[in-house]
Nucleic acid binder design. Sequence first.
DNA 1: CGACACAGTGAGAACCTTCTCACTGATTGC
DNA 2: GCAATCAGTGAGAAGGTTCTCACTGTGTCG
Lengths: 366, 366
Amino acid sequence: MAGVAGVSTATAGRVLGGYGKVSETSRRKVEEAAQRLGYRANGLARSLIQGSTETIGVIVTDVGNSFFASAVRAIADEVRAAGYEMLLANTDADPQTEQRALRMMWEKRVDGVIIAPQGSGSVGHLRPLVDDGLPIVLLDRPLATLPEVDQVIINNTSCARSAVNHLIELGHRHIAVISEAAHDFPRLRSVTLAGGDAERPSAARLVGYLAALRRAGIDADEDLVVHSPYNRAAAERAVLGLLRRRPEVTAIFCTDNVLTSGAVAAIQRSGRRCPDDLSVIGFDDQDWTTLVRPQLTVVRQPRYELGSAAAHRLLQRIEERRSAPNNRSRAENTASGDAPKIQEAQRLVLRGRLIKRASTGPIPPG
Amino acid sequence: MAGVAGVSTATAGRVLGGYGKVSETSRRKVEEAAQRLGYRANGLARSLIQGSTETIGVIVTDVGNSFFASAVRAIADEVRAAGYEMLLANTDADPQTEQRALRMMWEKRVDGVIIAPQGSGSVGHLRPLVDDGLPIVLLDRPLATLPEVDQVIINNTSCARSAVNHLIELGHRHIAVISEAAHDFPRLRSVTLAGGDAERPSAARLVGYLAALRRAGIDADEDLVVHSPYNRAAAERAVLGLLRRRPEVTAIFCTDNVLTSGAVAAIQRSGRRCPDDLSVIGFDDQDWTTLVRPQLTVVRQPRYELGSAAAHRLLQRIEERRSAPNNRSRAENTASGDAPKIQEAQRLVLRGRLIKRASTGPIPPG
DNA sequence: CGACACAGTGAGAACCTTCTCACTGATTGC
DNA sequence: GCAATCAGTGAGAAGGTTCTCACTGTGTCG
């Protein structure tokens, strides 16, 4: 490249990289040569020397899920505006896959990572990156044992509580919840309302459900806390089973978008009329919730904003680190007592809210 | 790194990279040092020297759209299985954004690109990459002027034709279509059935609509070819306008998933009963189409498979190129008559099909 | 006229790998 | 006993940038 233009690599670099001073003559020579050769900068070499790739990693469980699709879209927008790019990976909630993705991104030297961690097992994968000073933001799922990392989440517990409150106010007493975290019921029972949002979303919502019942003086019935694997068909079966098993149930709270569609399908198949026989509240305001009849009462979560906020936060951290890269720690086993870097993690809680529509109504007479 | 282990960089490289021969002693020394230092390979340096990044670029208009969300998910799966990673960008159908994304990915030295091009303007952006020998696969949208590039598309035209045929068989004569390509109606009128799939999807589907009408001897009425911008609210307004303007319409064919939801919303608001007053066919079998009443007759397109196939094709091309990198052309203006590299582009057409459900029925009496 | 600032330039180090080549010392084959 | 093989190793180039440093020549100021 430089050879063709008849100047040194230094000068060519100055023109192409837009730094330093170059005479008009050399500039023209280089630009012409670049044009002729179809030159494109080698981002790898640039990143290698500059120590930054202008790329972030995004790890979610499934972009095919509309919730993450929206969040990822938001991240992409934010990131693009900052001139960055985005490496995307799905984990399907598999720890191994998560670890591998994290590792690869780390080796590819991403400038930061936004991750919806699979669970507490993720801490082990994340730890080395955190210690290395890589900016990380937790999306949608907090990690109690990783308090030094920023997180952006939804106030799931109080959202769930207001949803269930709404049902209680309508007179319902036999309120079922369909949840991926049902097996955790015994433990979650003793989690306080305030502590709920430290759990993963499905658990946090279950905590909200329990809190609402407790406040109303209703005993939580374990049999009404219905577990379902995370797919529509399973949710449909689970709800169908519930309705057969416990016909006195007059309301169902769904804790998630895919469980919601399964529940709606089940109710339609069960022949129960909604909301006359049965009230339903869905989670996550997908676009079809106004197309079904009755229109669905749902908890709307700001999923796009969740992504934006996470990306914004991450970019800010990257910027901070760039201007003060002293804390590239790689903590050796120094026996020094106090940690010098008080990174001060930020925890951003976005607020979802209940949208009352036609799928919830007063309890059936009798 | 090597220093700490007390061996040369060469030996360290051999251990860490897993090539060449190393004694057990050195291996242990290096591994121990790596462990202690928290060593991770620098993918940038590796890629720089090896000339491959194990990363592909994916460019779609919007991952937030469920169609692309599925396709991207599929690509991610395929790519992960091959040990690659995926750089993702959205264009919102903006040529500038597309060009920028393509440029950045190119500079970052992706090994290949899967792109749903914005339109004929994309050819200009793509041309240099193609000439440079970068493997590229066109997703969902063909590009007539770029015949040397692989493409993976849906048989949109015949899907649309069977949908409209279905309506015709039911007795409908006043069949409206709602399409993003409506303004192109005059030109598309003269496109043959066979040529339809060379158009972008919305146009291809319009061609299918026209072909079905033509075969049935029905004159296409330009006023029934309704244009709508690409969002649900606009589609809803457009359909509402249509129903007011042309009450004799008894069937509507939607050419796209977001237009479908707009149309369904409009019909519900219009007070017309479906399918008694009005039959509807949607495009793309989203999960809610069985939750609305009546359940929607739709054209189902294999969107996941579309992504898989594209990724599969691309990885294959990358593999081919790796084993025979001679065709790294950078075609200088050689006046030689014949092209030596008969790359033989592949064009893969996946088949969608009509799923008949309850939203289509015989024409209303009278 | 000498000291100095300053624009423009090139040489070369650095970034971190991979990979070729040459070398040592030991073993094998004849 | 000597050549040939072979395992194991290190030196150093290459990959394409960025960036520091030193240098030249021109103009400016005292």
